[in-house]
Design a protein around this nucleic acid. Structure first.
Lengths: 342, 342
DNA sequence: GTGAAAGCGCTAACAA
DNA sequence: TTGTTAGCGCTTTCAC
C-alpha cells in the first residue's frame, strides 16, 4: 500500500499562500471581511490541494455536531426501515448525519445505547421504545444532558420532555371494528399485543370502545394477548380457535405478521377468509397486497412519519418547541375482510 | 424549560478533587501509574457528577472516530436493511457507530455523500454502488484520503483498493437454469437488469453459460433487459409474452419484485405458474414464501453478508488486509417452479 | 505517582 | 482587510 496521504488543513493552505489560517477560514466561509480576490485565490488553492474541512474539529469547536441519533427496536422491519428512510431524507436535506442503533427490543441494550448517545456525538435523538422496556428513566436522563428527544410510534407518557409523533392507533382500531361490523361480523376477536407498549394498548382501547358503542360483547374469550407478535402466534391462535365451540366470525390482529400466520393456518385447516373468519391486520406491510387472500390492514404512513419526526427533532434542536403530532391512519380494505362484493 | 445543565468534563472532576486533569484522565483509563485509591476516588466522583466522556474531543485528539459510514441505494429494501442490520450488529460489538446514507440510486447524490464521508467523521466506508453510477472515480478518491472502503453486492472491478463481499451471482443464476432444466423446461427466458451493475451482469452470464452447457438456445427474444426492476415491469413482460407465438416455458427474473409482478399478471391472464410458465426470482425476499404460488428464489444471506462486510472493514481499519469474500447463494425451490411433485 | 503543557483542526473574539 | 490568540475536551510526552 502506498503512502497514506496526510490530510490537508487550513494551515497548509495558509502556509502555501503566505497568509494566516484565519484568513483562509474566513475566506472559505465567505466572510464579508475578505476581499473577492483573496476568496477566489483561497478557494482555488483549497480545490487544488484537495482540502476537506474536518467536521470533527468543527463539532468540538462549535459544540454542534449536525448529527442525530436514531434508536429503533429493529432496523430490518418494514415499518422501521420506512421511518428511517424518511428520517434520512429530511435529515440529509437539513445537513444532518444519521447515526443508527438498534435495541433488539432489549431494555439493557437500549440503556447502553442511550448512554452512548449521550457522549456528545449527536445533537438530538429519535427513538421508539423497545418492547422489553418497562421503566423509561433512561430516556428522561437524556434531557438532563441537554439532548432533545423525539419519540415515535412506541411512546410513553412518562417521558414528559420528549415530543411525540404517533399514529392514532385508537382511531385505527376503532375503524377496523366498524368496518368488520359493516361487513356483517358480530363476534369479533382481538389479538392484542403486550399492554405496556403504547401502540398495542391504544389499539385494544379502540377495539373495546368500538365494540361497546356497537353493542357487541367482549368477553374473556374475545381478547387474546400475544407476546412476540410473530407469525407462529397467529398459527397457534387458529389452532386454538378450531377447538372452540363458538368460533369468531372475525379476528382483528394488532400485527400483520400474526395475521399472516393466521391466514396460512386457516388455509391449512380449510377455513376461508373472509367467509369463515374475516381477518384484519395492522401496519399495512407491503406483503399485505401480495398474499392470497390479500390482507385488510391499517396504513400508518411510516415514511412520512419519519420525515415529520426528523423535522420535529431538528426544530427542537434549533430551539423551537413544536407540538406533538398525531397521524391519522387509513383503513385499507382488501379481500381478507371484504364480504360484500361491490 | 429549565437550565440546560452544563456538561461535566474531566476538569470539573479534577477541580473537585484538587488534582490535575491528567490524573483524572489516567485514572479513568486505568493507567498503571495511578494509585488504586486515587483511581477508586476518581471513578466514584465521576459517577457522582454524572460524567460522560466527550467522544468528539476523543476523536479529534486520537484521530480515530470509531464510526463507519454506510452508503446504500435504499435503506427501505429488505436486502439492504438486512445487510444494515448485520453491519450494525457487528459494528456495535466492536464499539463502532454506524452512520447511514442513501444514494437513492443517484450518481450525483452518491458523489456528494462520499465527499461528506471524507470529512473526517468516519474511519471507513461500506458501500453498494447506485444503479445510476457508471463512472466510479469518486470511490477511488476515498482511498486517497486514507479512508478504507469495502464494497458489497454491487461492486466494480474499477475500484482496485476496495475489498469486496459479493454473492456468487453467477453460480446462483447457473443453478436456477439447471433447476428449471430438471423440471423439464427448455425454453427459458431471462429478465436481466442493467448490465453496468455487477450483480445483474453476473446473473446474465450464469444464465447464458448454463443454457449453453445444457444445449439450450438463447436468442434475441429470450433475454429481456429491465430498467428499474419494479413490479410493473414484470406485469408488462407478461403482457408482451401473451403476444408471442412461441411462449417461454420458464422465466428467470433477476429480481423478486419483477417476478412478483409477473405472477400477478399471469393470474390475471389465466396463466398458471409453474404449469404454463415456471417462474423464478432472485434475492429470496420474505414475501416469496407468502404469496401464491410461493416464489422460487435465491437466498443471498444478506444479514450474514452485513456481518462479514463490517468485520472486513474493521479489520482493514485495524491495518489488516483481509481478502475478498464470495458468499455461495442457495436456491430455494418453491411452488412457482416445482413441476415434479415429489 | 502526579502535574504542566502541547496539540488534534477549527472558529471567533480582539487587535492592528 | 488581515493576523494573533485562546480554547472546544481530551490524551500524552516530558518533567518532577
Amino acid at each position: 500500500m502506498i503512502s497514506k496521504k496526510k490530510k490537508v488543513s487550513i494551515y497548509d493552505i495558509a502556509q502555501r499562500l503566505g497568509v494566516s489560517a484565519s484568513t483562509v477560514s474566513r475566506a472559505l466561509q465567505d466572510h464579508h471581511s475578505i476581499g473577492a480576490e483573496m476568496k477566489q485565490l483561497v478557494r482555488k488553492t483549497a480545490e487544488e490541494m484537495d482540502y476537506k474541512p474536518n467536521r470533527v474539529a468543527l463539532s468540538l469547536k462549535l459544540g454542534k455536531n449536525n448529527a442525530i441519533g436514531v434508536l429503533v427496536p429493529h432496523i430490518n422491519r418494514n415499518f422501521f426501515s420506512s421511518v428511517i428512510e424518511g428520517i434520512q431524507q429530511t435529515a440529509a436535506e437539513k445537513g444532518y448525519d444519521v447515526l443508527i442503533c438498534q435495541s433488539n427490543e432489549s431494555y439493557s441494550r437500549e440503556c447502553q445505547l442511550l448512554s452512548a448517545l449521550s457522549q456528545g456525538k449527536v445533537d438530538g435523538v429519535i427513538a421508539s421504545i423497545a418492547a422489553g422496556t418497562q421503566d423509561v428513566a433512561h430516556f428522561n436522563r437524556l434531557e438532563q444532558y441537554g439532548i432533545p428527544l423525539v419519540l415515535f410510534d412506541r411512546v410513553s407518557p412518562e417521558i414528559p420532555a420528549a415530543m411525540k409523533v404517533v399514529v392514532n392507533d385508537y382511531r385505527g382500531a376503532y375503524q377496523v371494528v366498524e368496518h368488520l361490523y359493516n361487513q356483517g361480523c358480530r363476534r369479533i376477536f382481538h389479538y392484542a399485543g403486550p399492554q405496556h407498549v403504547s401502540v398495542w394498548k391504544h389499539r385494544l382501547e379502540g377495539y373495546c370502545d368500538a365494540m361497546k358503542d356497537l353493542g357487541l360483547k367482549t368477553g374473556r374469550e374475545s381478547i387474546v394477548y400475544g407476546e412476540d407478535m410473530v407469525r407462529e402466534e397467529g398459527e397457534r391462535l387458529i389452532r386454538e380457535v378450531m377447538r372452540m365451540k363458538r368460533k369468531p366470525d372475525a379476528i382483528f390482529f394488532t400485527s400483520d405478521f400474526v395475521a399472516l400466520g393466521a391466514l396460512v393456518e386457516m388455509k391449512k385447516q380449510g377455513l376461508s377468509a373472509p367467509d369463515d373468519i374475516a381477518v384484519v391486520g395492522f401496519a399495512n406491510e407491503p406483503f399485505d397486497e401480495w398474499i392470497t387472500p390479500s390482507l385488510t390492514s391499517v396504513e400508518q404512513y411510516s415514511c412520512r412519519m419519519g420525515e415529520l419526526v426528523a423535522k420535529m427533532l431538528i426544530d427542537k434542536i434549533d430551539g423551537e418547541t413544536p407540538g406533538d403530532i398525531v397521524i391519522e391512519p387509513q383503513l385499507i380494505v382488501r379481500e381478507s375482510s371484504r364480504k360484500n362484493k361491490e
